[in-house]
């Protein structure tokens, strides 16, 4: 080996190339091999196969509903984390946090609006996605289990939205949760106990706000993230998106 190759001057000269090559693994090779390595060499893209069926690209087939639901979740996680910097889960401070977001925090009102509207949209789009999967018979073998995971994700979405509904601590939130949790009391035998477990008391108060907050920002999002991972992974394992038989 030539000593000059390892000189400091040479290393500095090659710094950008070497850093780039250490981050991005590219095997080189033909154009298709390069394109393949973009997908399987990237943590975030590797859930994709290197090649997909043309039917997967048809917007008229999927309408993009599942992906839209996922993107809304991404927007919700990012805007939700930002909101956590301003929100205090106490019955004395929660409503003031809302007023702060509206009048004191730069773009706070847009941040809260995005979180609110994306949440409503996500409930709707997850439901639309379920309708698409039903009407294209995509739940049939071998994708039965992924449908079950999807139903769990719909329930999680509803529960996430419901727990978030209480957090502004305004009249709308308070009475919606009061009405919503009253339905639980109609469960035979353990109805009242279930409601007590949800609210941490007999009525919507400080304990209920704290429980809903912890569920909303920690417990349910973690379960959601894990199940979304399973849902995507199963698409791949079940042979990609459903499609009609090739002729």
């Amino acid at each position: 080996m030539n000593k000059a190759t390892y000189s400091l001057a040479e290393s500095i000269k090659l710094l950008p190339v070497n850093i780039r090559n250490s981050v991005i693994r590219r095997g080189g090779g033909s154009e298709d091999q390069e394109r393949a390595s973009v997908v399987f060499g990237n943590l975030f893209l590797h859930l994709h196969p290197v090649r997909v069926h043309l039917n997967t690209l048809r917007l008229g087939y999927t309408l993009g509903l599942g992906l839209i639901s996922f993107y809304l979740l991404v927007i919700l996680i990012i805007s939700g984390i930002l909101l956590m910097f301003y929100y205090i889960p106490s019955i004395d401070m929660a409503y003031n946090s809302m007023l702060d977001l509206e009048f004191a925090v730069s773009f706070g009102v847009v941040l809260r609006n995005m979180h609110r509207w994306a949440a409503h949209a996500m409930v709707a789009f997850v439901f639309f996605h379920m309708c698409r999967v039903f009407y294209t018979a995509s739940y049939k073998s071998p994708r039965e289990f992924n449908w079950v995971v999807g139903v769990c994700l719909l329930l999680l979405t509803l529960f996430l939205s419901f727990t978030g509904y209480l957090l502004p601590w305004d009249q709308l939130a308070f009475w919606a949760i009061t009405v919503g949790t009253n339905i639980v009391t109609y469960v035979p035998w353990i109805g009242d106990e279930l409601r007590y477990l949800m609210l941490g008391g007999t009525e919507v108060g400080q304990m209920a706000l704290l429980r809903f907050y912890v569920l909303h920002i920690a417990v349910l999002p973690m379960v959601m993230a894990a199940l979304v991972g399973v849902h995507f992974w199963r698409i791949r394992k079940d042979g990609g998106l459903s499609r009609p038989l090739d002729n």
């Binding site: 298709d32 394109r35 393949a36 973009v38 997908v39 893209l45 994709h48 196969p49 290197v50 090649r51 997909v52 069926h53 043309l54 039917n55 997967t56 690209l57 917007l59 993009g64 992906l67 839209i68 993107y71 090739d246």
Partner: peptide, 17 residues
């Protein structure tokens, strides 16, 4: 079998969405 490369065909559409 009517397969196309995921990158760029699918990835670009996903980012656009």
């Amino acid at each position: 079998d009517n397969m196309v490369m995921t990158y760029p065909h699918l990835v670009v559409r996903e980012l656009l969405l």
